[in-house]
Every structure is written in structure tokens, then in C-alpha cells.
């Protein structure tokens, strides 16, 4: 396998990912890796991005599932209020699909039901 297309590499650390860029081993995730994945996705991580990424990791930790976008919006709304629990807000942060992109950066599998 070609490491350049099947893994993220930081220094000499190799983090394998699937063909769509989702990390294979959740436990390998770290903030530096998240920054690297974000860069691949052309996203500059701000505190607002981190808030979503951390929220997703907590959600996954509790429920063992990456939430679908509709579910993410609802859960964000409950925790952070209607301004952030909003599809438009999340799309502004993650233009290519908040659930998909933010999950990838968070080192989670692709949300079930996303095609």
C-alpha cells in the first residue's frame, strides 16, 4: 500500500485511514492529527471548529455512533443554544458537510447514513 494515499504522516508517525480519509483507528487521534486532516479539507481550525469537533468526540464516546447532521444540529442546539445548533452555522464552519467533514477531523467513522 502507498502510505501517501492510505495514511496521514506526522514526522514519522503513520496514521492509517480509509479510502475517504477517515481514520482507521480511533484511539490514534490527537490534536496535531486533527489539524493535519483539517488542512487536507482546506479548513483553518478556529475555536468554533474545535467546539464542534470536541462535541462530536464526546457524542461518540457516549453513544458509540457518529451522529447524522440532523441529530448533530439538535444536540448542538441543546448544549450551545439555537445560534450554534443551526445547520447554516455548521455549514459555514464545514462547507462540505458538517457531519462528514467534522467527523473526519475528529477521527470518527463516517456518520451512519451518510453516502
Amino acid at each position: 500500500m502507498d502510505a501517501a494515499t492510505s495514511a496521514y504522516v506526522i514526522d514519522s508517525h503513520v496514521y492509517e485511514h480509509d479510502e475517504e480519509g477517515y481514520l482507521k483507528n480511533l484511539s490514534e487521534w490527537n490534536k496535531e492529527l486533527a489539524e493535519l486532516i483539517a488542512k487536507d479539507e482546506k479548513i483553518e481550525m478556529t475555536p468554533e471548529h474545535w467546539e464542534v469537533v470536541n462535541f462530536l468526540r464526546d457524542y461518540y464516546d457516549e453513544y458509540q455512533v457518529a451522529p447524522a447532521i440532523r441529530v448533530l444540529v439538535k444536540a448542538m442546539k441543546k448544549t450551545f443554544g439555537p445560534e450554534k445548533g443551526d445547520q447554516k452555522y455548521l455549514y459555514e464552519l464545514f462547507p462540505y458537510g458538517p457531519a462528514k467533514q467534522a467527523c473526519k477531523i475528529a477521527g470518527l467513522p463516517k456518520p451512519t447514513g451518510c453516502v
Binding site: 457516549e62 451522529p67 447524522a68
Partner: peptide, 14 residues
């Protein structure tokens, strides 16, 4: 194997 039982608790969100 992955313990998927916690996912049942997410069903309410769905």
C-alpha cells in the same frame, strides 16, 4: 468486538 449497546441510547436523538 465493538459494544454497540450505548447506541440504543442515541435513538431518541433520531
Amino acid at each position: 468486538m465493538k459494544n454497540f449497546s450505548p447506541t440504543f441510547k442515541a435513538l431518541g436523538d433520531y
